[in-house]
Computed example of a mutant assay.
Amino acid sequence: MDKAERILLVFCRLLKHEWLNKTSLALEFNTTERTIERDMQSIRAVLSEARSPAVLLWDRQKGSYILSHYQHRPLQSMEALTILKILLGSRALRLDEMEGLVQALCGLLSPRDETEFSQLLEEELDGYHEPAHHQAIIKTQWDLQQCIRDHRKIRLHYSRGDDMRTSHVVFPLSVVVSDGYFYLIAVVEGTAHTGPAFFRLDRIRSFDVIHGGSHLPEEDAFSLRRLRSTTPFMFGGKPVRLTLRCKNSAVEALFDKIPAHTVLSWEEDTVLVEVTVSISGFFRWLLMQGDAIVIIGPEPLRQAFIQTLQRIQNAYTDIKEDCPK
């Protein structure tokens, strides 16, 4: 009996949920225990390659192997509804793509729950408004993810918000979702810009894989966890440290938006907080907070935000002057 036949017979017995003793197998197949161990490693490799939920376990006390079958329970209706709310609330996908995802979600339910969920689904989808860009996203993000996995450098053909077409050679690092948009986080080759750049997927017209391109240098090693905690806004730029005074009513919003914060002091109605952010994205978010969050320092950045407020005031003043009486 050759190796392939032996492994196949062993695997068939494992599928029957038999305990297989290593010493007994070695005697049965007239081979060594070391050979049986190698056979079991081959079976583990096949299970891993096939992404099987089953796991080949070794019991030291029994000196035996057994195949553990993990039974996946059906998704419950309340869990599916929660996922549905998150998906629809993101408004990050075109209607046809969203419908496809939701139908796949239905397939994970038990037949009884699927009937109930289908009624809820129709009501939820009825009020869905797809993003204004009307671009397909799912295939693009998957293709980019393959480039990230394989450490491929790519040439990105991009259309900015002002419709200006640009081209960049980038090292793709990650694809994330923020504020209703998918973003590619990447390091742009040949630029003095520090830190990663952010590209909206709906504005990527196409990209080409650059074969044989160099990999991202080790000193530029990317940590998505660190980036998410220090760069909650999808804008590039050098991170800067700010001290903020925040009213109690806005503390939760600030802490949720910028998890990597440091509380300097708590007062009766306010809290002093230190954060590290990219300025352009942070200023846009800060405008939504009114007077609930105020920049205390450093002074040059406080003045920069005051100038932003003055430009906004001037824009509204100009409109008032242009209005017909």
Rank of each mutant, 00 (worst) to 15 (best):
A292H: 13
K257A: 11
Y158D: 13
R226Q: 08
R60D: 12
A192M: 08
G190S: 14
W58S: 10
A250P: 04
H129C: 06
E97V: 12
R302E: 11
I36S: 01
I148Y: 13
K3I: 15
V46G: 06
V170P: 00
T317I: 10
R225Y: 08
T194W: 03
V275H: 00
L81I: 13
D59V: 02
V188T: 15
K325F: 05
D143E: 06
T23I: 06
E123A: 12
R38M: 15
T276M: 04
D39G: 12
P298N: 03
L25A: 05
V170C: 04
H168I: 00
A221W: 04
P239I: 03
L57F: 04
H72N: 05
G237M: 08
W142Q: 14
E28Y: 01
R94S: 06
E219A: 09
H168L: 07
L20Q: 11
P324H: 06
E122G: 08
L56A: 01
P239F: 09
A197Q: 11
Y181A: 05
Y65S: 03
E99P: 11
V169I: 10
K139W: 01
L227C: 04
R149F: 07
Y128R: 03
R228N: 06
L27V: 11
E5W: 08
L15D: 07
D322Q: 15
R152K: 08
S118N: 06
V209D: 07
Y181F: 15
T317Q: 13
K3E: 04
N314D: 13
T317N: 15
A104G: 14
L56Y: 01
Q303F: 11
V251Q: 07
A45P: 00
R160W: 02
L242A: 05
A104E: 15
D59T: 03
R226L: 09
D39R: 01
Y128A: 09
I7K: 08
C12G: 07
Y181I: 03
L254Y: 00
I148P: 02
Y181H: 14
F171N: 04
Q71I: 09
L254N: 02
I204F: 04
E274F: 02
R225F: 06
R160P: 01
D126Y: 12
K3G: 02
T31F: 10
R112M: 14
I43C: 07
I306V: 12
L105D: 09
Y128I: 11
R34P: 04
H133R: 09
N248K: 09
N248W: 06
A186Q: 12
V169N: 13
E321A: 15
A92E: 00
G180S: 03
L108D: 01
L84D: 02
Q310R: 10
I66R: 10
P324N: 03
S52W: 01
S206N: 04
S48W: 03
V46L: 05
V277R: 03
Q303R: 15
L184V: 07
D269W: 12
E49I: 05
E124G: 00
I86W: 02
G127W: 05
R34W: 07
S52I: 02
R6V: 11
N21G: 13
A54Q: 14
F233I: 09
L216E: 00
W142A: 05
W266P: 11
I293G: 05
V102E: 00
L9A: 08
T166V: 02
V240H: 13
E321W: 14
I43V: 12
T308G: 00
